[in-house]
Every structure is written in C-alpha cells, then in structure tokens.
Nucleic acid binder design. Structure first.
Lengths: 103, 103
DNA sequence: TCCCAATGCCTCGGTTTACTAGGCATGAGC
DNA sequence: GCTCATGCCTAGTAAACCGAGGCATTGGGA
C-alpha cells in the first residue's frame, strides 16, 4: 500500500544523500520502510521524469558491468522543494492522525 | 492539501461517533484538522455513495427546517473496515515519517 | 549448455481519487 | 430583492498509481 502523493517527496529525500538511479531508489524506499512502501516501476520512472522536467533533478548516464544506469542528482531547486514537502507531510499527516486518534 | 486515499477512513471515523450528514462530515474534518484537510463536495458526495455501495454505510433522509438531509450511519462491516484502515494508516504513515526523518 | 532470476530502463492503458465548475433548492440577514 | 450559508448532486478533467508488457545484460543453478 502506498500513500498517493508521497512518492516525489520520498524520491527527493533519497537523493538528498547522494545521486542514485531509479532501480536503487525504489529498493531503498522499500527497504527503509521494511516493505511497507513499495512503488512499482510503472510509477517510479514517470515520477522521476516529471521531477526532472520540473527542474528538481538532473540526470546523467553511467555504465557499470555493461549495464546503463541513469543517475539522478538533486538540484538546489529540488532541495528547497524537498524541505517544503517535508514540512507539508508533517502538517498533513499530523492532521490525519489527530482526527483518527481523537477516540 | 489532502492525502489521497485517506478520505474514506476519515468519513468512517467521523461516523463512528454518531450518524451524520455529508455537509456536516466535511465541516468536521476541516474543523478538527484546523483547516489543513479540506475535501470538496465534488469529492465527498461520490465518496459517500461509494462507501454505501460497499456496504460500509447505510443512509436515511431526514427533514429539518424544510431542508432534506441524508444521514449516514456506520454498519458493522464499516466498523471492521475502519479498524483495519486505522491500522493501515498507522503503519504507512509511520513508514513515510521514518524515511523522511532518518536525516 | 540452457534457462531463469535479478538488474535496469521504459511505455501504454486502465482504475482510483480528487478538483473545478456547474445545477438546484431553502432560509436568514442586509 | 439579493446574497450567503446550508444542503444535495453530477459531469468533465487531471493526477497518481498499478499491471502488463517490451527490451537488454549478467550470473547462477539444473
């Protein structure tokens, strides 16, 4: 199960550490969430392309073991968006939790 | 901003207290979240109809001050679904938070 | 040797979810 | 008389996600 709308934030967050490529980004999200969050390739790749179009990421190709990988790197613009989205997540998720917990 | 996918859970939760009608449900969600969550009528009413079709709610009409209101009541089935969805929200939102906070 | 799983990228079509923008009606207040 | 809040609704559109496919390489097991 995935919360719709959180994927861009999660991608930007993963790339805040270091540049990475799509397949690995997906794996990391899944692993860090202990399998709870599991975005499919049909979701991930279009999301990456969109983030790049929006100027939040730049990409470059790299070949390793005969395999071409497309690495993504966070831009300054992306970094700013990330911090806003983190804040927004806190606000909205707290709001939902607040309602659901108020017995 | 609304987290897509949380509306059914929020509706069921509001109705867990007492039967209520659409307009009021929307107001309560907005008020309890201090304005953060604000689902529009074009979203709310179809969602209510769907929940009723799924057997999670039943409805009845009531007239007050010349106005017809459609009240919704949680069914047993709806109550069970609500508890599952609450659990799911905890799990998934914790997963997202875990990732975003792990600096 | 041959096949399959994992890696790694991608697109297309369909479903779900939400929003915008409308329609319709009543009652209260200016 | 008009507008705003209440109260219900639908139709069209956009966004997000998924399933199912395509394509290519590498490594391991039968």
């Amino acid at each position: 199960m995935n919360l719709k709308g959180t994927l861009p934030t999660l991608i930007l967050h993963v790339l805040d550490r270091e540049p990475n490529h799509g397949y690995r980004i997906a794996q990391q999200i899944k692993a860090k969430s202990k399998g709870v969050l599991d975005f499919k390739e049909g979701t991930l790749y279009p999301a990456l392309h969109k983030l790049e179009n929006q100027g939040f990421l730049t990409s470059y190709e790299e070949t390793a073991q005969g395999r071409i990988r497309r690495y993504y790197r966070l831009t300054e613009k992306g970094r700013k968006v990330l911090s806003k989205e983190r804040e927004e997540w806190r606000e909205v998720s707290n709001a939902v939790t607040l309602i659901l917990e108020d017995a």
